[in-house]
Simulated assay, not measured.
Amino acid sequence: MYDFSLQLLLAVFAVFILACLGYGLLRLRALSADAREEYADRAATKPATLRGVSEGEFVSLYVKSFAPRWAFYLAAGCAVAIVLSPVALVIIPAIYDQIWRATGAADWAGRGGYVFMFTVFFGVVAFGALPAFVLARLHHTRAPEPFTHALARARGEPIPEETGWRRRPKWARRVRPDTDADADSSASAGDGGSSD
């Protein structure tokens, strides 16, 4: 029964990985078709936005900017978790045994106890969390620039620097406290507090 459940779990992970990869590849193909349509539309209606940019370069920029990168990173994360789980299940009990023996080998902390199970469980979780952290970090640090910036750079135009601070729009009114309401509330509090 144990072998079958392990094989079933591996099969579920394999199907999930293949689903992520399949989704990512299908989206890349659809994005390429969308990019060609967008290029044809822009060439007809807004040719200035394509000045100096070939169709192949436009398609490449479009796909790179809008690609579902998360699907590929998720598949990679699951594959790494599958590979690291057996390693974790060998290393963690070995380290636990060394620490257990070094601390006096108490009966309550042996291999069948709750301390051992707690250590193995959270050790395996940590073995999965570290690669997930690394892949999430890579996903965010390797994010492509926005499509409008990439297209402007391909046309040879300068990209405006983002200041990070936005001025308040002129149409937005500032909130000012109602001074009459404050005066009324303080006067009523003064009157109501003095009773004979």
Rank of each mutant, 00 (worst) to 15 (best):
D97R: 12
V15G: 14
F4Y: 04
V15E: 02
F122R: 01
R42N: 07
R153Y: 03
V120F: 02
D196M: 06
Y73K: 00
L151R: 14
P160A: 13
L89N: 14
Y23T: 00
E162Y: 15
L9Q: 03
Y73P: 01
G52N: 09
L6G: 07
I91K: 03
G22M: 02
L18F: 12
F147W: 03
Y96A: 01
E145A: 13
V124P: 07
V53E: 07
V120I: 10
V63D: 04
A94E: 14
A136M: 11
F116I: 01
E55C: 08
F72R: 09
G56H: 02
V53S: 09
R42H: 13
G113W: 05
T119E: 05
H140F: 05
Y23P: 00
A187Y: 11
E37Y: 04
D107A: 05
R137T: 08
L31S: 15
K64F: 03
L61Y: 05
P177A: 15
G24P: 01
A187V: 06
I91W: 11
W171C: 00
D180E: 12
V134Y: 09
L84H: 08
F58V: 02
S60D: 14
K46T: 04
P144G: 02
V83T: 11
G123C: 06
I91Y: 03
T103M: 13
A106L: 13
P47T: 07
G128M: 09
R101F: 09
D3E: 14
S54A: 14
G128V: 01
I99F: 15
A40E: 12
G56N: 08
A30Y: 02
T103C: 11
H139I: 00
G193N: 07
W165C: 06
R137Q: 02
R137Y: 09
S85R: 03
C20T: 00
R174M: 07
R167K: 13
L28T: 11
Y23L: 04
I95C: 05
S185P: 00
M117Q: 13
V12Y: 04
T163L: 06
R167D: 14
D180S: 13
F127I: 02
V125F: 08
A105G: 10
A75F: 01
H149Q: 13
A11R: 08
A189Q: 06
Q98I: 06
A172I: 09
D182V: 05
I95A: 12
V83I: 14
D34N: 11
G22D: 00
G113Y: 05
L25V: 08
A187I: 03
A33C: 03
Y96T: 05
A40K: 12
D34Y: 02
